[in-house]
Structure formats: structure tokens, C-alpha cells
């Protein structure tokens, strides 16, 4: 399953676009409307046709998209597990296991500046062949704070080590 592009099946894309639409409605405060429920109903029609991997990816995307609209970030202190999580993330990126990379990044995201995390997420989605989803994260990254650092190698936690997918 390594270094594979994400699915472009019609059912998967239908749910992916639905998730983008629900995210946009959330940003505009309209995620509790009939329009949002219409989108949810359409997504449910094909959701159970997706593979478990696809379902988990889109559920993870739902969680990750909230980070684009959540408030102030408070850095968490690193723990002994941090190094292991970093290694898992690096290995996933090096082997092109994009789902594992997204999952690993989610586990360490609270250690990192949100804008930095968005850049990494954008890179992963881009590498997995989904520029539309990547753009959502890149856009946040472009406007988010980086404490004056634009070089990923100088972002917190993994200085000079964290892998940015090319």
C-alpha cells in the first residue's frame, strides 16, 4: 500500500467533496442547516461502499479540517514518545504511505505550530494526488503564524529532521 495515490473512485470523490462542502459550511457558520443535512444524506448513500481505509482517511480529514478554524494554539510539552512518533511519521513519508503519514502527524500535531502542520498535511495530500484537499491546508499555512519561521527545518520539535514530502 506504499507510495500509492489516493483513490479517485466516484464514491470516494463524492464523499471527499461532501467533506469539503461541510467544512466550507462550518467556516461560514452554516453547518447546521438543511443544506448541510442534504450533503450528509448524499454522502451516507455511498459511504458504506468505501473501503475501511478510505473511511478512516475521510474521518481523519474531518478532524484535521477543524484545525483550520480552531482558535489559539498552545504548545504541548514533548514526551518520550515524541521521538517514536516522529520516526513513525518519517518512515511513512519516506515509504510513501500517505495514510500512515497523516495518522502519525495527527498524533504529534499538538506539539507543532498549526501553520507548520498545515504545510505538512498539504504536502502529504499533494503527494497522494489530491491537490484540492492539499490547497485547503496550504491556504491555511500561507495565512497562519509561524513565529517568523518560513523554513520547515526551523519549526519546533523536529528541527532539521522532519520530512516534508516532495
Amino acid at each position: 500500500m506504499s507510495n500509492r495515490l489516493f483513490s479517485r473512485s466516484s464514491d470516494y470523490l463524492h464523499c471527499l467533496r461532501g467533506m469539503h462542502q461541510l467544512h466550507a459550511l462550518n467556516l461560514s457558520g452554516q453547518d447546521q442547516t438543511d443544506e448541510a443535512n442534504r450533503i450528509r444524506g448524499q454522502m451516507e448513500q455511498v459511504w458504506w461502499n468505501l473501503s475501511e481505509t478510505e473511511q478512516e482517511r475521510l474521518d481523519g480529514l474531518s478532524e484535521d479540517l477543524y484545525t483550520l478554524s480552531d482558535g489559539l494554539w498552545k504548545p504541548s510539552p514533548t514526551t518520550p514518545e515524541t521521538k517514536l512518533l516522529q520516526e513513525q511519521y518519517d518512515h511513512a513519508v519516506q515509504t510513501g504511505n500517505w495514510d500512515e503519514a497523516l495518522n502519525s502527524l495527527r498524533l504529534v500535531a499538538h506539539f507543532l505550530e498549526p501553520a507548520a502542520v498545515s504545510t505538512l498535511r498539504g504536502s502529504i495530500w499533494q503527494s497522494a494526488g489530491d491537490p484540492e484537499t492539499a490547497e485547503l491546508f496550504y491556504e491555511h499555512s500561507a495565512h497562519g503564524p509561524r513565529n517568523g519561521q518560513s523554513d520547515p527545518a526551523k519549526w519546533p520539535l523536529f528541527p532539521g529532521q522532519i520530512e516534508v514530502p516532495q
Binding site: E44, L58, D59, S62, E63
Partner: peptide, 11 residues
């Protein structure tokens, strides 16, 4: 349940 069926108040 899929994310879009779990009430968002349970975040």
C-alpha cells in the same frame, strides 16, 4: 459512525 453522522456537539 462516519464523522458526518456524529453530532458535532460531541467533538
Amino acid at each position: 459512525l462516519p464523522a458526518f453522522l456524529i453530532p458535532s456537539r460531541l467533538r
